[in-house]
Each structure stands twice: as C-alpha cells, then as structure tokens.
C-alpha cells in the first residue's frame, strides 16, 4: 500500500501518454491497439471474450460496463457484484499462480502492478495470454482503467458512459458542497488496537474529502501511514470515517471509537459524526466510489433523510 512519492507523478505522465497514444487509437479492422497503465503496448486481434481479472476493482468495472460474461476467472478477493461468485477463483497478489490462469485459457489477464512478477508476466505472454496492467491511484486513474477495460472488451461506448456517469456524480457532489466548509475529516484505515493508520494526501479518500468540501485532517501525511493517537486528539477532526469491518461480535467499529479513553472530547464524537463506511466501497478504485461519496454526502449534509440510528 505504501507508495513512492515519485510514483503519482510518473503515473500522470504515463496516463497523459496513454491518453494520446493508446486508447485513442481505438479499433480499426477489429484489431485493437491499446496502452495499459504501465505504458505497455498491447495488440488484440479482436475484443477479448475470455478474461481473467485479478483485482476486485477491475472486476467491478467489467460488470459495470456490461462485460461480465467475458469473465472466466477472478482473483480470490473479487466478490462484487454477487454474480462473480459463480466464476472460478484463482490466487492473486503475492500468491499469483500462473498455472491456474493458463488453465482457464483466457485471451487477456487484467491485474494490478502488485499482483505479479516480471517472470510471471513473461510466462503468461509466452502462453499467448495478453497481460493488461491497471493501477489507478486517483480518480483520473479510475477513468483510465475503465477506458482500458472498455477497449479490451470492445465496449468503448459503455465505458465512456460509465465515466461520464462518474464525472457527473462527483461533479454534482462537488457542486453541492462548493466552497470550503472549513471542516476536517479523519479517515481511520486501521483501528487503535493495531496502530492507527490513515489515508493522507494522494489517496482516493483524500480526493473524496475535497469533493465533499472537507479537508483531510492528515493531508500532511503522504499516502498511507501509521500516526500517533495524540495527533488525532490534537487535530480534533469534525468527522471520523472508519473503514473497519464489523464481524458481529464485540463492539461495532463506531462504538469502539467513541468508547476510547480521551476521545469523548472530540468534536466528531460529541456530534455523533463517527461514520463507518464499507471499506470495499471507499478503497476500491472502481465505480462504487460513487456509492461511497453519496453515502458520505448524505450522512454529512442530509442526516435528516436517514432513518434514525438504532
């Protein structure tokens, strides 16, 4: 999760290049030329009909543009939408297993940079499988990933429509919250018991914060980092968003936060502004970021429309 500072800059350049040289080339004579998010040029004879996707966000994008039926294999963490549960599972991440993928005979594998080694990529290419790397670190990157997947599946129109829908949704929220509210938000990625981790600048959550007219309380932290508890108390954020999951036993993540010693005096705790958001919605660079933004918007700006909390 930790990233080099130079990476976002590098990726922006890559994206710019991709925008003009790659996807824009589009399709002529069915042959597809595209450049993935690592700047690798890929040529497909025809739109792919058998695809293995290793990352959950790409999987969600594939379904969102209506190309779900091309999926023949998914990484073990791909769990949305519910339809994917019928698709065979392959190992992903550090455990990526080339044999499993080749056995599914896909034309294309879509994965992130973290998912494979150079040797594994070469092995798959040698087996005639095209490897497409998507690695969005910001919302621009999500649009880029959608374009790439649209190009791979030959569903460019649907991809563009999805991007437009996202642009509109985000624009609408940004418009409604226009003008700095001056309020701050603290994203808690990992709870106190395991050391507080937060999302600093250069993360999706940071982008969502500014979209919502809020300031990330830890904007001085680059990407992700473990922070001191006393820093949270000192910065006294107006909103606390935890992405911890609740497994049905013990206190809920929100209950746990408000019961922490010394946290009772925080503005967010006093005003009941501690929010638990589905970590998959808010941390996956996919179309469900729209849901995350809408949920947060509703809780922060239109709490009266929500059913009273139990």
């Amino acid at each position: 999760m930790k990233k080099n500072k130079a990476l976002p800059i590098l990726l922006t350049i890559v994206l710019l290049v991709a925008q003009f040289s790659g996807v824009a080339m589009g399709e002529t004579n069915e042959t597809i030329y595209l450049t993935d998010m690592k700047g690798r040029e890929i040529v497909l004879e025809a739109p792919a009909t058998r695809i293995v996707v290793l990352t959950p966000s790409d999987c969600e994008i594939l379904y969102a543009i209506g190309a779900g039926e091309t999926l023949v294999g998914r990484g073990e963490y791909c769990d949305y939408p519910a339809d994917v549960n019928e698709i065979p599972v392959v190992q992903s991440g550090a455990q990526t297993n080339v044999e499993q993928i080749i056995a599914l005979q896909p034309q294309v594998v879509i994965m992130s940079t973290m998912a494979q080694t150079v040797e594994q990529t070469e092995a798959m290419e040698a087996a005639g499988i095209k490897v497409v790397v998507n690695d969005a670190v910001d919302i621009e990157g999500v649009y880029q990933a959608i374009s790439v997947i649209g190009a791979v599946t030959g569903m460019n129109a649907e991809a563009d429509a999805l991007i437009e829908r996202m642009v509109n949704t985000f624009g609408e929220v940004a418009h409604k919250t226009s003008g700095e509210s001056g309020k701050t938000i603290y994203f808690e990625v990992s709870p106190l018991q395991w050391g507080l981790w937060t999302a600093g600048s250069g993360t999706f959550m940071d982008e969502l914060a500014s979209m919502l007219g809020l300031t990330n309380a830890f904007a001085d932290v680059q990407s992700w980092g473990e922070i001191s508890q006393e820093q949270v108390l000192m910065r006294d954020p107006d909103y606390i968003v935890t992405i911890s999951m609740y497994y049905g036993e013990g206190p809920t993540p929100v209950e746990e936060i408000v019961s922490r010693e010394g946290w009772q005096d925080l503005k967010a705790v006093k005003n009941s502004a501690v929010i638990n958001v589905d970590s998959n919605e808010i941390s996956r660079p996919g179309p469900r970021l729209m849901d995350a933004v809408n949920t947060l918007y509703q809780i922060i700006y239109e709490p009266e429309t929500l059913a009273p909390a139990a």
Partner: peptide, 20 residues
C-alpha cells in the same frame, strides 16, 4: 478469512493503543 486483520496484530509489536 474475516478476522485476518485482528490476527495480524499479534505478529507485530505495538503499544500505541495501550490503556490503563
């Protein structure tokens, strides 16, 4: 599965959240 994170804690040392 689900409890993975809670378990990972025991393999790293942290006294950040210690209470009375």
């Amino acid at each position: 599965g689900d409890k993975v994170k809670s378990i990972m804690f025991w393999t790293m040392g942290s006294l950040a959240g210690s209470n009375y």
